[in-house]
Amino acid sequence: MDILFVAIPIALLVAGFFVAAFLWGVRSGQWDDVDTPPMRMLLEDETETKNRADKDKNAP
């Protein structure tokens, strides 16, 4: 079971990576508005085909 001396630090490193990713997400504002994106997702899904043409038109 001496593998624990290697496995635990590795596990913590992996955990640390995910915590860092989360903190990066928070700092860059990805959690600032959690109300609108779920709604917007529904809308874009439904209007995707219809708007693709518009988007192409509006692209700079």
Partner: peptide, 17 residues
């Protein structure tokens, strides 16, 4: 709000481990 979230996230990860 970001500070609160960062704290909750870090504390949760530590508590879980």
């Amino acid at each position: 709000n970001r500070q609160h979230l960062a704290r909750v996230g870090l504390a949760g990860a530590l508590a879980g481990n």
